[in-house]
């Protein structure tokens, strides 16, 4: 998961990038909306995987940083009439700073205790969004976000999202393939041993959490502008669980896995909702299938299939 891109990978990235740029030309309004939202969730899932796949801790409260980015940006734009750039940056910084504080405490713990503490902090964020009615409008939702005129257009907002998300993914790719990224995998693989080759493991895990909070904040800020509103559900633990499932579905042991997971889950949700209201059941069944049969996600499955086709017997590998 920290190896350089293969030739195939490079071509695939280029093709997807071109497809993203061409989508508005060939697609309907509906497709553009779906594309925008999918990109946002891809970034959200990818940011979470920095904590899960790379540092080896399960955050059950990642929605908190998404919600903080979204709320702060939306409130500054709408209530205080700030211009886009400062509002957006402040929103992302608020998410990052919160993540920095939370991570300071969470990284004292590992495993299930880490997961529970992240959950607790995120529920505190949820409770504040829920109760601080004068600012967030509580469970009525913060509706009618003022989107700057420049972006108040479906296609322009789509391209804005493409630029931000693709740039974010590129930065995340560099981070995960940096000296830090590879060392972080070592921390995940063997915390004790990593400490004894001189790696300050707690600081590494803290750093990963903060970066993840930053990009979750970016995704949240985009999301609030896309749907022109923020709702307390965005901070609730079920939202954290949903993005966790996206990450897991794609595969946590691969850089691009979470993006694929987010895209697939998102489309499945849209499709399912056309036919039935029981999307949770479908999601539950998908989750069961992953847990019982696809522990390394879709990317892992893909690798096993290609390996089989090539007649290799290796099932493990890294992107």
């Amino acid at each position: 998961m920290t190896a350089p891109l293969t030739a195939f990978g490079k071509v695939a990235c280029l093709v997807i990038l071109l497809a993203l740029l061409a989508l508005p030309v060939i697609g309907s309004d509906y497709l553009i909306d779906i594309g925008t939202e999918m990109l946002i969730f891809a970034l959200f899932a990818l940011s979470l995987n920095l904590i899960i796949g790379y540092s080896g801790n399960v955050s059950f409260g990642h929605a908190a940083y998404f919600a903080i980015g979204g709320y702060v940006n939306a409130i500054l734009l709408t209530t205080y009439g700030w211009p886009l750039l400062p509002a957006f940056v402040t929103g992302v910084l608020a998410a990052t700073l919160t993540a920095a504080v939370v991570a300071y405490f969470c990284t004292r713990l590992t495993d299930i205790y880490f997961a529970m503490l992240t959950l607790a902090f995120s529920m505190l964020v949820w409770a504040i969004a829920f109760k601080w009615r004068s600012v967030t409008h509580g469970d009525d939702g913060f509706v009618g976000v003022t989107v700057p005129a420049l972006l108040d257009d479906r296609m322009r907002f789509y391209y804005f999202t493409v630029i931000i998300v693709v740039a974010s993914i590129a930065v995340l790719w560099v981070i995960t393939h940096s000296a830090f990224g590879r060392s972080l995998v070592a921390v995940r693989e063997n915390l004790g041993r990593a400490g004894f080759i001189g790696i300050h493991t707690r600081r590494m895990r803290w750093q990963a959490f903060v970066v993840a909070g930053f990009f979750a904040g970016v995704a949240g800020a985009l999301f609030g502008m896309l749907i022109k509103g923020m709702y307390v559900e965005s901070a609730f633990w079920t939202q954290s669980a949903q993005v966790l499932i996206m990450t897991l579905l794609g595969g946590i042991y691969s850089f691009f896995g979470p993006i694929i997971g987010a895209a697939v889950l998102f489309m499945l949700e849209r499709l399912t909702n056309e036919y039935t209201e029981y999307w949770p059941t479908v999601l539950g069944v998908i989750l069961l299938v992953i847990l019982l049969f696809l522990p390394d996600g879709l990317v892992g499955l893909g690798k096993r299939l290609t390996a089989k086709a090539k007649g290799k017997d290796k099932t493990e590998g890294a992107t």
Binding site: F180, A194, I197, I199, Q207
Partner: peptide, 21 residues
Amino acid sequence: ENVQVALMSREGQSTNMFKLC
């Protein structure tokens, strides 16, 4: 990678997020 991460740690590069490995 096992050996390389130890070398990166020795050189104080473990927390460097922008130096490709």
